[in-house]
Design a protein around this nucleic acid. Structure first.
Lengths: 217, 217
DNA sequence: AACTTTTTTTAGGATAGACTAAAAATTAAT
DNA sequence: ATTAATTTTTAGTCTATCCTAAAAAAAGTT
């Protein structure tokens, strides 16, 4: 496995290659390489059994390819948590450095880093961190930032930084309380929550990354 | 700059290429590549002005090459500190992972990591961490582990972990006290110190990494 | 000084990855 | 349904990095 192949597999995954056929054109666009290079890489990955190739249609990840993709995403997201939480990166700065680091990380390193970070479940964007074996953990809670307007939820878990807990106290947001997400503004705007008792609370965009909720159907 | 070139420059430096001519043979041995590949890489680095080449003799780093070597060593050693102090690597485990990470680190990342680590001066092996610009900081203290049998020194600085401070208290080692290094055993063995008042103290090998001393001439 | 051994260089290839240009196949449009 | 446009594949190059084998130069030996 070279960094190039890793990026290619990851790109297929991110374009939905777990379930759908991903076209060469899509890969040309996301990886910024020529169509000829895509065909070439396809034949290489096909030979290694990581993808299924349907000529003139595109590719899908095999079971083996999917496992590798998830393990890469695991590395990427664990680094993102490190960059954001420990090095003070803003959550939109983490991506490019995590992209470099994920290709230079031994399994030992990732496992130790994971423990150092307290075995996080989500990355700073709210994405789930896959397990070591490439499987996806069963999640009963979702970062609030991932929710859409109108859903009802219950507060499940919050970031335990002192300052943040004080903020939540001030906003009267606490574990177990139920809300409806009345509004979520675009461009990193605020979120409006309405509790079952009817009070409305407006919270900041970044706070919504640090609040995990369970959806109520 | 590619990882390969970086490794090559670093190898020249580590073989003494700052002051002496490093032969192709030495590079063949340390990098485990063929003699032909060494010649080839030499011509590449020569073209980039990173080395001076004396045909049939070997290479020396130019000013430019030296700066790059030191910046690489900076990255390497900062990662070593991280691996040892934060991820609990043993000091002899850090090298290989640091070797991977040093090629995947943006300048921003290294500067933030450096701050996160408290701007350390030495790596876990006692090596000095070069400055951002590739210069070497003026050091008045040396890790005790770097000292040779017979030298006299004064305790300048010690690691400030609670547990370690208690150990030093118990051993009666404190700042400002002067000693002679009576013995230092091979194979990570203990060190024997003799204070000016004549008492001898035996301390563990690992403790000697955490004690900085100033040599007395 | 001539011969042998070691080291370095040159010459010629291999592979991974990327490219452009042109051919082939598919999809869209009249 | 035939033509036009798009997409994919093939063919031929290019560069970086590595290799082996042979030639050239330097160093060591008798």
């Amino acid at each position: 496995m070279t960094p190039n192949k890793e990026d290619f597999i990851k790109a297929i995954f991110e374009l939905g290659g777990q379930t759908q056929v991903v076209t060469n054109k899509d890969l040309v666009r996301t990886l910024s390489i020529s169509a000829a290079s895509v065909t070439e890489m396809n034949t290489r990955l096909l030979k290694e059994g990581l993808i299924t190739h349907l000529p003139y249609q595109g590719v899908i990840l095999t079971e083996k390819g999917l496992t590798i993709a998830n393990q890469l995403i695991r590395k990427h997201r664990i680094w993102e948590v490190f960059l954001a939480e420990k090095l003070g990166y803003d959550w939109n700065e983490v991506h490019s450095d995590a992209d470099l680091l994920e290709h230079a990380s031994s399994d030992l390193l990732i496992e130790r880093l994971n423990i150092f970070l307290g075995e996080p479940t989500f990355d700073p964007h709210g994405g789930v961190i896959p397990n070591k074996d490439g499987s996806i953990p069963e999640i009963h809670s979702t970062p609030l930032i991932e929710c859409t307007k109108g859903v009802q939820f219950k507060i499940k878990e919050v970031d335990d930084q002192e300052e943040f807990l004080e903020y939540l106290l001030y906003k009267k947001v606490h574990l177990g309380k139920e809300y409806t997400l009345v509004d979520i503004e675009p461009y990193d705007g605020p979120l409006t929550l309405k509790s079952t008792s009817g009070e409305e609370t407006i919270i900041g965009h970044k706070a919504a990354f640090k609040i995990l909720v369970e959806l109520i159907d």
